[in-house]
Write a protein that binds this DNA or RNA. Structure first.
Lengths: 334, 334
DNA sequence: CTGAAAGCGCTTACAG
DNA sequence: CTGAAAGCGCTTACAG
């Protein structure tokens, strides 16, 4: 049997409540009493039982993180940073992989996962704002990404459109005229894919260049799909002198396919991505990309969620944060 | 206020215990009673409170996973697979990043993290077997990796030595004579680095070739360190016609550095790694590596831990499992 | 097959 | 500043 607060109270010669007060940093405790309790805790090696505390207080000191797939480098790096940020504030992070399955996403908003966590960092991919609103209950939710941008919900995101435009402008300034885009999602205009594509179009427009839909290839956001998309363009005889992968793994898959086919990068075709995952720096050639401010996203989203939990942030409307971005110009598109 | 078992009992017209029996699939319940309870559950939208259940039963339905850094691709992919495997058995996985810090590793063996989880999948990197034995308590622990191989503990690992030898033999068979090794850890002979280096030495021996310590470069297991290690060898004028990165990110960092320096891969220098992370297939050139059987590792480690939890496995001595491996011969070292 | 009672280890009003 | 009591929502012996 583990040591309980009762044992501590007995050894310290005080009541249960006094032990609880010491444990919870209650202000008005006589220093001598506090010391006696702390000595007893040390002597017995007492450790608070989090489950009992949770049952009574309704708080778990865990935050939920919902994302599609932890093995995607962007999510892996983000999760690692979020966990570190949460840990600095005394919270743990419980991760749920949704696989972009709507029923899994809905499931995390209620039931066990919700019970186990005090608040949620939620990357919606398959469900809509009203579905979240219908079951968001009283625990705070901070949305990540851009699938849902809604004034009702807190949101931490990145400057997708602006950054994609800046990257496209860079390619244009370098003399590229036919920039293929891979990773489009024709079925959704609101998400990251849509916003980044918008940025691309705006940059073209600003440069007085026509948009050519034949340069836009849809693809799932995976390496192999990026490779296949570029293969498709090449096989179809589409001409292009640059490829903008809407994220890094797409761009890296494309880069791989181009090199296999004997297409020189960047001399014949420049390649650029989005996310600046660790791997981008070490690709060969190294990948030009957008650093979307992942550190800032991690800090701000944890900060906002904890502010909501602690009642430090009480705005009725959702707070929207967009982290700053930075262009990383590397060998693949100098 | 959430719906409780009491509410269900009232609506169904039965006692608390009967509701509990239905919830816990107790065998001997009259079908009609069971139906009444299930109807009440559906009507009220009742969901069991996991915290209360945990407090009373001492079980949390969570497994702990301790690893150094979730953003390392190998760990990210492994964690994703472990979570999926656990989920199929009704368990969640709570991840703790240790950063290879001994005090963090020790901390996960007791205290809150231990309380929150029914069993542990533990990747020790900085602590030793006796330290684990001293605080392993009654909850099961399955070790991952090879830092600690001890008959007292269950262990799921890979065939490091055998696989490294097979990979080295492949390089030798392809005519490579001076194979540099990067990522050695001179301070530890037992871990993955030591075992893989052993495999390398055995393959050399088998081929009747001398071991040259000048070809072995220590490095942390990161991309940038792999690049720096190769740069060091080149700058020191060490001659080599192949590089064996003791894991994939080391090999990919090395590959990058070689290409930057104008060294042709594989014609001048072949490059091989270990792990077969997703990225290896899509590197340019694609990376020859060892697939260490990650699916098998995930399945077996979850399976073994759950067998211990359920009392299906009662062996007094630790059970050691080594997953099968496969050589993935790709462009970087054909 | 089902019920009434106790209790897991805390925190939370309520007193004093 | 500290104490005695109640109760969070379950499961677990114990009866019957």
């Amino acid at each position: 049997m583990a040591v309980t607060m009762n044992d501590v109270a007995r050894v310290a010669g005080v009541s249960l409540k006094t032990v609880s007060n010491v444990l919870n940093d209650y202000e008005f405790i006589r220093p001598a009493t506090k010391q006696r309790v702390q000595d007893a805790i040390a002597e017995l090696g007492y450790e608070a039982n989090l489950t009992a505390r949770s049952l009574r207080s309704g708080k778990t000191s865990m935050l939920g993180l919902v994302l599609s797939d932890l093995s995607a480098p962007y999510y892996a790096e983000l999760a690692a940073k979020l966990m570190k940020a949460a840990s600095r504030h005394g919270y743990r992070v419980l991760v749920e992989q949704s696989d972009a399955d709507p029923s899994v996403e809905l499931g995390t908003l209620q039931g066990t996962f919700r019970q186990l966590t005090d608040g949620l960092l939620f990357t919606p991919l398959a469900i809509e704002a009203d579905q979240i609103a219908a079951r968001s209950g009283t625990k705070p939710v901070v949305l990540l990404g851009e699938h849902i941008v809604d004034p009702r919900f807190d949101l931490v995101t990145m400057k997708n459109e602006e950054a994609a435009a800046a990257l496209t402008a860079h390619l244009l300034a370098a003399g590229r005229r036919r920039i293929a885009v891979i990773g489009a999602r024709p079925d959704e205009s609101a998400g990251s894919a849509g916003l980044r594509l918008n940025g691309y179009r705006k940059a073209l427009e600003e440069a007085g260049m026509a948009f050519d839909a034949g340069l836009v290839a849809p693809a799932e956001w995976r390496r192999d799909a990026g490779a296949a998309a570029v293969a498709g363009l090449l096989d179809a005889g589409v001409e292009f002198d640059a490829v903008f992968g809407l994220n890094d793994v797409l761009a890296l898959g494309a880069l791989h396919e181009l090199l296999i086919r004997g297409v020189a990068v960047p001399s014949e075709v420049a390649v650029a991505g989005f996310d600046d995952i660790d791997e981008a720096r070490f690709a060969s050639p190294s990948l030009t990309t957008v650093s979307p401010g992942m550190d800032e996203i991690a800090e701000r989203s944890i900060g906002l969620l904890l502010d909501r939990l602690a009642g430090r942030e009480t705005a009725k409307a959702g707070i929207h944060v967009a982290a700053g971005f930075e262009l990383k110009i590397r060998e693949s598109a100098p």
